[in-house]
Nucleic acid binder design. Sequence first.
RNA 1: GGGAGUUUAGCUCAGCUGGUUCAGAGCAUCUGCCUUACAAGCAGAGGGUCACAGGUUCGAAUCCUGUAACUCCCA
Length: 884
Amino acid sequence: MELTKNYEPKAIENKWYSYWKDHGFFRSVPDEREPFTIVIPPPNVTGVLHLGHMLNNTIQDVLIRKARMSGKNACWVPGTDHASIATEAKVVGMLRERGIKKSDISREEFLKYAFEWKEKYGGIILTQLEKLGASCDWERTRFTMEEDLSDAVLDAFIQLHKKGYVYRGLKMINWDPSAKTTLSNEEVIHKEEKSKLFYIKYMLEDSDSFVSIATTRPETLLGDTAICVHPSDIRYQQLHGKRVLVPLVNRLVKIIADDYVEMEFGTGALKVTPAHDTNDYELGKKHGLETIDMMNDDGTVSEAGQLYVGMDRMACRKQIVKDLELAGLLIKTEEIQNKIGYSERTNVVVEPRLSLQWFVDMKEMVKPALEHVMNDDIQFHPERFKNTYKHWLDNIRDWPISRQLWWGQQIPAWYTEDGALVVAKTKQEAILAFKEQGIEVHENMIKQDEDVLDTWFSSWLWPISVFDGFKDPNNADINYYYPTNVLVTGWDIIFFWVARMIFAGYEFKDEKPFQHVYFTGMVRDLQRKKMSKSLGNSPDLLALIDTYGADGCRFGILACSPAGGDLIFDSPFDSKTKQVLNQSPLCEQGRNFCNKLWNALRLLKGLEVVAGKNEENAVAIDWMNQKLNKFATHYHQSFEQFRLSELLIDLYKFIWDDFCAWYLEMIKPIYQQPIDAYTLKETIRIFEQLLSLLHPFMPFITEEIWHELGERSERDCMIVHPILQGSSFDEHTIQLGEEVKEMIVSLRDIRARSGLKNTALIKTYFTSEEPEKHAAWHKKIMRLCNSEVFECVAKEVADAQTFVIKSNTYFVITGIELNVEHEREKLQKELTYVEGFLKSIHIKMSNEKFVNNAPAAVLEAERKKLADGEAKQKALIESLEKLQ
RNA sequence: GGGAGUUUAGCUCAGCUGGUUCAGAGCAUCUGCCUUACAAGCAGAGGGUCACAGGUUCGAAUCCUGUAACUCCCA
């Protein structure tokens, strides 16, 4: 079949993805080979594929495909996590549309709807990964809420509770009033904002004087139970122990002294609201203050607040300021910058709130996790993330794991009406556990904890639980695949995931979960803003794939992604609408690269072949082979160092420049002449080897070309073909070729500057002490520069344009009158350069300290430079003299 | 307030343990080409005081100190 002029990815990508899948090439089962395992950082079920996923998963696919082609048993486990808060919000939204209120249905009914939602939408992101070419073992797809994984979560909880790591306690937590749940510190995003600082009068008991207090959250005064000043603040010393009236509610509270107060901030006097501020809570405990919880779980004012009951806290803030003003209690308002915490999931202002929650004590788990990262048992790429990791671990706090939601694993804790508590997996076990404590209960006398566990309490077990390491701790899969080889993830979730997975690895398996962690950067737009759904600055990935092909997009995203560093994705914005466009010059470059490969294929397929071997091509084939061996060595080293982005560019240059622009031009027969069978065979072999190196990065086109290049049996596919390994190479052969390239470039330059037509012939002569050095190349040089003569001569050729490479001088007769002045300038310029070069070496060599201190190899290199330079200098001077 | 990182060509980045006149690559730009694999292409060219100031060294983009700007994390 005739090949299309341009590469058309769409049909080809669909074809090969199904072919790979149908032939089980993604499938992995334990065998005698060495395993290479990656577990996907589970994207959350509510997600759609964005550029971050594309980056992350392309890298994983590159690593997996490379391993597969290197003879390893490559296993990439896909899956999703249940994203409790985000999903619950989606499900509540879906119910609302159907006219159902969450509060009107039971937990069981709600979960039914949630699973229904997950079945419908939860798989979208995984099918989108297929479009990218992700070679996951889909038969292994897991989900954090499926039964076995949920069991693992409960087992882990129970086990940690037995050890005393999991406990229940009353603490100040971050409350999301929209999702009505607690959040961990990591789920709160602090943003710097302009806020108002209100100065409020607190009247002294039985007096006309007052203390003025500055606060950004005036509504919380409903919960005030003291005022605090610094003990050595002379402004307030006479007031210690006196009482003031809390404005509007007129509650009498004490003035206490504590050196926690900053004298410089505000008025130096602090209102104390133990129920709604972490520091105030500590003060309250210390000074035995009453705690008044003035807020309901939805952020409205509670009965305990007395006033404004039922009003939202933000509305209340406005109203209370008005009322304070009316009452003459508002002194002034200032604008300040401060940080406000927002919920990562619902984007509402997070409220500190006192609450009874479940926590994990991290003290013991931190120890091995820190040790094994610091001693490189687990390696981070780039390494500097060890610092961040260490800092967090050194300052770790207990992990709040309960969430006031339904979508998640319900906490396996059981209570009697009297508040007695046991932790047990089932109700039956709970009853027995109570019995052991001497408490006799019936089924209907105990209740399970209403709350669920944090999603991250599921995902931290992922590298173990996907292989059923909890359910069946010694099964074949876990023994074979664990520990996994590499985790690829964004550095933004180093705490959520990476650290906690390491905790879990050592806690439950006494072994690391992975050998390497590869941190990717954040994907940013051209203004360096983080790409996000809310900003709408992310191009539509599927549209990009549609335009440039999956291979083109993979190239585009990888080409600009240094490990760990942020990545500026080059999608331009429409200057009028400010909308991001589904375009990308880098992906376009990737697409063009595909086209280049495609046309190299067309060239080879379009040639007529004759039997035999054209000896003239031997030098080119040899040169290409040596270069390829050298490149393959570099290729595998780059993988070991995870330098994927640079490697891809190197590969691009190697294929485009060395293979297509040089090699193919060298061996390409004259128009309408046939190629000899030997050269074609060798060329196809080289092409195939290059394809094997490129396949991990650009799987579809390489597979397609692989099949176009030869008759293949059903399972003879690029995806499972052995990748080219590095082998020894002859540097001398390579350098000779590079010198020839330099010659040709100079000759072409002369042609171009002389304005010669492509068809015009030139004559080339040269002087050389080693006339035979490039003999094998002469025919190729003549061909590539359209030179009818290429000969060594004993002395200079008159009226010729000249240039010098090493100590050889080249003379070119173009048939166009020589511009002597121009020629002289050119040579003089080069001579000046060489002489400067030589001077710098002379200075070095005459420096005794240099000669004495520099290593022998450096000295040797300097001497060689000197000799080469002097030879060139001599040749240039001679040519210049000739021009006089 | 504590910490990390970045600063090299118009843009995005390499430059690993100081050692070629070391200042690189890709893209973009400019010039000339529709040369039957490819105009999604070919052949060429120009472009930088390596943020700034000191220091160490025979030698610094590279190591040290300080300054500035930007980014991020934690409190």
